[in-house]
Each structure stands twice: as C-alpha cells, then as structure tokens.
C-alpha cells in the first residue's frame, strides 16, 4: 500500500462498474487508490477535495457518468465546472492542479477508467513532493470543528 501516491477517488455509483475492480475499498490493481462511492458525482463538495489534499492525499479525482448521460441529468457537468474552479484556486495557492482530476466513464468503461486512473497516478508520481499535510489529524473525529470559509 505504501508503493505509489495516496489517491482518493470519489466515484459515482451509477458510473463505472466497480465490483470487478475493487477490493476492500481500494482498486485491486492500484491499492494506493482509495475509492469512495457517492450517489452522484455532483454530490462531491469541492471543499472535501481540498481537505483531502490538505490532509496528505497526493491526488484526488472524481468520476461521473459520461457527459450527456448523467443519471441525474447534470451532475457531471456541474462537477466538472466545480473541479475547474477548484483547479484555478489551487493554482493560486501553488498546488499543482494536476493533483485534481475529473473523469467520466460509463458502466462498461472499466478498462478505460483504470487506464485513466493509472495515467492520473503516474502524473502525480512525476510531480515534486507536495507540501506536508496542513494538520496531521490524530483522532478520527475530523472536519466537524474545522470550518472552511469558501
């Protein structure tokens, strides 16, 4: 698990079929990638992505259904806009926007999805090391107290 950058992926439950790809919440082929299933890619709040990067993840990506075919009509377009905005914000803070990704793959695109994730991970591996985690959390009672003002 220690080989490879720590990557957190938020994956829409309606997009890629994860059952054959996943094992114990991680991708079988890339155990350093932790998958969090969400009801729609639009469910992901950009501050969670920022938080994950701030807490020591090397990269974060969101996966939705193919563009035009979101089960909830617009979730993936909205999420792509939010990811774009967050990438611009990260750039201003000297964080490489390549650490944040937006993918769109359908139920049958498992291999293409894996290839995209692999490219994403390789891209992060090539980056210079990130700044140390902002706040190393000791207890698993996270963000409740910490308020991000947008």
């Amino acid at each position: 698990m220690s080989n490879g950058p720590k990557v957190v992926g938020f994956v829409c439950d309606w997009s890629v079929d994860l059952v054959p790809l996943m094992e114990g919440g991680r991708l079988r082929e890339m155990p350093s990638v932790r998958i969090i299933r969400v009801p729609c890619s639009g469910f992901v709040r950009p501050s969670w992505l920022e938080d994950a990067l701030g807490r020591g993840a090397d990269g974060v990506f969101v996966t939705g259904c193919p563009y035009g075919d979101c089960l909830n009509r617009e979730g993936n377009y909205l999420m792509r806009d939010r990811v774009d905005q967050l990438q611009r914000r990260l750039q201003r803070r000297r964080v490489d926007p390549a650490r944040l990704g937006m993918l769109a793959y359908g139920l049958h695109d498992g291999p293409a999805f894996l290839a995209a994730v692999r490219a994403f991970v390789e891209g992060i591996r090539a980056l210079p090391a990130a700044a140390p985690p902002r706040s190393a959390p000791a207890a698993p009672a996270p963000a409740a107290a910490e308020r991000e003002t947008p």
């Binding site: 969090i36 969670w48 996270p142």
Partner: peptide, 20 residues
C-alpha cells in the same frame, strides 16, 4: 446533508485513505 450519507461519513473515509 443527505441523512443516510453524512459529510462526517465521507470525511471518515477520506481520513482512512490518507492515513493508511
């Protein structure tokens, strides 16, 4: 919030991911 999938639950999964 979605009552059966709270922000707290998401954050717990993120934490688990970055600490491993």
């Amino acid at each position: 919030e979605l009552p059966k999938f709270l922000e707290r639950d998401v954050q717990a999964q993120v934490l688990e991911a970055v600490r491993a």
